[in-house]
């Protein structure tokens, strides 16, 4: 998010910060891999309820997943906007992405509260433990993403994001899309597939 020009000449011809972001995302694969692995290991192993089949509300979560998916579209439209110098488009799409992200988060907050009412907590059983920690970590990533988007939005509003700085949007986008694809995996493996 700094105002630095793209790196001059680099050994690979790739921008330093973009390479850094990709390395970060590669290592994030291991982070989410571990969390998902723990969920899968303990799936169906809870000694007491409530169990996933008692709680999951597939239509609701599908809408959530859809919201996050669409936020990826608006995110990439924000990038396309700044790349052609369309400041107004940039602001609109950034704002939409942040709002969709917030919508997803409120959906998650609602879901957590509902589950909690039904008696599921971090300590109630293995399902509660692995579910809350996995989706909670994902939610924390989305939260950070929203903060980044809002920060960029403020910068855009002040006119401090010019066409030449589109890399800032691109990097935020890479992060955002990654968080989105993690949810694609979670949605299928955790919600839709239940043995």
């Amino acid at each position: 998010m700094s105002h630095t020009p793209a790196a001059l000449e680099t050994g690979t011809g790739l921008d330093n910060r973009k390479l850094l972001m990709w390395l970060f995302l590669a290592s994030e694969c291991l982070l989410f891999g571990s969390l998902i692995g723990a969920y899968l290991l303990y799936r169906g192993q809870s000694v007491v309820g409530p169990y996933p089949e008692d709680l999951f509300d597939i239509p609701f979560t599908s809408v959530s997943a859809f919201v996050l998916l669409m936020s990826s579209v608006t995110m990439v439209l924000a990038l396309a906007a700044i790349q052609r110098g369309d400041q107004r488009g940039l602001r609109i799409w950034l704002l939409s992405t942040a709002l969709l992200g917030l919508l997803f988060l409120s959906g998650q907050a609602f879901e957590f509260t509902e589950f909690n009412h039904e008696g599921l907590s971090l300590s109630s059983n293995l399902f509660g433990t692995t579910f809350f920690v996995l989706t909670g970590f994902h939610g924390a990533h989305v939260t950070v993403g929203v903060l980044i988007l809002l920060s960029l939005l403020v910068m855009a509003w002040r006119g401090r994001l010019t066409q030449s700085q589109s890399l800032n949007i691109e990097l935020a986008g890479l992060y955002w899309h990654f968080v989105d694809v993690v949810w694609i995996v979670i949605f299928t493996l955790i919600y839709l597939i239940q043995p």
């Binding site: 990709w22 590669a26 694969c29 291991l30 692995g37 899968l40 290991l41 799936r43």
Partner: peptide
């Protein structure tokens, strides 16, 4: 980079699950 991270995570997950009696799906 992405493929490496994904494959590593996937392979390790399969091995760990199989030794502890878990199943991928």
């Amino acid at each position: 980079l992405l493929a490496g991270g994904l494959m590593l995570a996937g392979i390790l997950m399969v091995i760990v699950l199989s030794t502890l009696g878990g199943r991928l799906v």
